[in-house]
């Protein structure tokens, strides 16, 4: 397994606010990292640092390269899809494929055309005339047809209808499976990406509130569904959040209380979404 992304002590300060505070992580081939957090939590700044488009403190290496000083070389293996369209609207689909084939050494134009032939995107259409979903699909097709090792997705399915989401994730997963790659997905639609992830990095006001692989994450937290009589006992266990139900409440607890809580009710595995919401609310 090769390390594809390493970020050490990334810190970004705007005049008075801390956008990112001392974030470090590593990503190997085969890992899918979920970058979670609300708007303004620092996801975009962190992505900017990885792409080499944001001045920051700390050390970043993607595919062993420095994103700022070795950008041109790095971009052979690094790609990025954001929630806003970055494709030039005045080009036609055929023109952008031709341009990419000219400047990108590993771009396989026939592969891109083949991918697009299964969609509704016609080569002669101007990009500006495509729907949001089609633009994302086009961008992904271009990336899949290059030898991209690290792909960063920033809220990729924002504003996409269900059908486009489905095709998007289908192409994405198939592409990811076919090589030694790493994927970073920033999103606040946790439900949608939860089962894709192998690792999670959760930010809140620029700080890491949760970090680790999905298995250890599920080992760190659990939910106990306990009847109301046990309310006081559970409150002793410093519950992170609770959700009242019919006759019983669901409490999110840290794993150190697991053996104690087992006697009080049914143990349930929390979803990432539940942990996410609880941690974002905590102390806020």
């Amino acid at each position: 397994m090769s390390t594809l992304v390493s970020a050490a002590h990334i810190t970004k300060k705007y005049q008075s606010t801390m956008a990112v505070k001392d974030v470090s992580f590593e990503l190997q081939a085969g890992q899918v990292l979920g970058l979670l957090g609300h708007n303004g939590a620092g996801k975009s700044s962190l992505i900017g640092a990885l792409l080499g488009s944001l001045r920051h403190q700390g050390e970043v290496r993607v595919c062993g390269l420095n994103p700022v000083s070795q950008r041109a070389e790095l971009m052979r293996h690094l790609a990025y899809i954001s929630d806003v369209n970055v494709l030039p609207e005045w080009m036609t689909v055929a023109q952008i494929l031709r341009y990419t084939s000219g400047v990108h050494p590993s771009f396989d134009i026939s592969k891109a055309k083949e991918l697009l032939s299964s969609t509704q995107i016609a080569l002669r259409t101007k990009i500006g005339a495509l729907s949001k979903g089609m633009k994302v699909q086009l961008h992904l097709s271009i990336i899949i047809a290059t030898d991209t090792k690290v792909l960063i997705l920033d809220e990729p399915t924002l504003g996409l209808d269900l059908i486009y989401r489905d095709t998007f994730y289908r192409h994405l997963i198939e592409w990811f499976h076919d090589g030694e790659r790493a994927l970073i997905i920033a999103s606040h639609e946790v439900n949608e990406i939860e089962h894709l992830l192998t690792d999670v990095l959760m930010l809140k006001q620029g700080k890491v509130v949760l970090q680790g692989d999905m298995d250890s994450l599920h080992a760190q937290y659990f939910i106990v569904d306990a009847v109301h009589q046990h309310q006081e006992a559970i409150k002793q266990m410093a519950p992170i959040s609770s959700q009242a139900g019919l006759g019983s409440s669901k409490w999110l607890l840290r794993s150190e209380y697991r053996s104690q809580a087992e006697e009080l009710g049914e143990i349930i595995n929390p979803t990432l979404q539940e942990i996410f919401i609880a941690l974002q609310k905590e102390g806020a």
């Binding site: 792409l51 488009s53 950008r71 041109a72 070389e73 790095l74 971009m75 052979r76 690094l78 790609a79 990025y80 954001s82 806003v84 369209n85 970055v86 494709l87 030039p88 609207e89 990419t100 400047v103 990108h104 050494p105």
Partner: peptide, 17 residues
């Protein structure tokens, strides 16, 4: 202004070129 800068920068083309 149109936002395509991010796309051009995502191509393996040096700033000098």
């Amino acid at each position: 202004q149109e936002g395509s800068l991010m796309f051009w920068r995502s191509m393996p083309v040096s700033d000098a070129l």
